[in-house]
Amino acid sequence: MKRRVAVVIRAADSARVEEAMRAALGLTLRGATVSVQVTPAQLATPLALRAAAALASFGHHVGPSAPSLSDTEVLEVWTDVGPGVTAEGAVDGAAEGAVDGAAEVRPEPEPEPDPARRVLHLLRPAAPHPRLGPSDYLVRLDDTGPVLATGHGAPFPPGPLTWPQLVTLLGLADLVVTW
């Protein structure tokens, strides 16, 4: 099945931008229409520039404008790797690929909410608050587990969720976006 996929790149680290652009290019291999939100300043390496040129030559959108949430079926937001615990148990804030003190890049404008669709926003700790549509759900991914912060019409009250409850919300959403 062909998909409409959006890739929003909010990373400042050139290695992460390259990975996002490599993924975006690869996502075209099964016929998906891909829209990439990225600024010219982020395309700072030859690999990223080549991927952008290839995508554009195939007719896919690459630029700073936000993807439409009206027809996007899958949205990947690529951010910098923040401090966290690696599989080896080390804090990865200083690991390969991490950004030392760099501010996260936030291309403008933000994706415009679509009142006709329900987006489940998953918010990592310290991630910027996204724009919400009237029927969107906002779930924080806290260290202690998921927490429903906003959920108009959700089958659960605001507050801590179990993981099975989050799976229920996944099934009720038209689109899932992790920030």
């Binding site: 998909r3 291999l29 016929g31 937001v77």
Partner: peptide, 20 residues
Amino acid sequence: GSQDDHAALLAWADRTVALT
């Protein structure tokens, strides 16, 4: 696998959670 598997996964799924 390769990025082709990434593309195939998104084509297969009803819902995708991108932890990217």
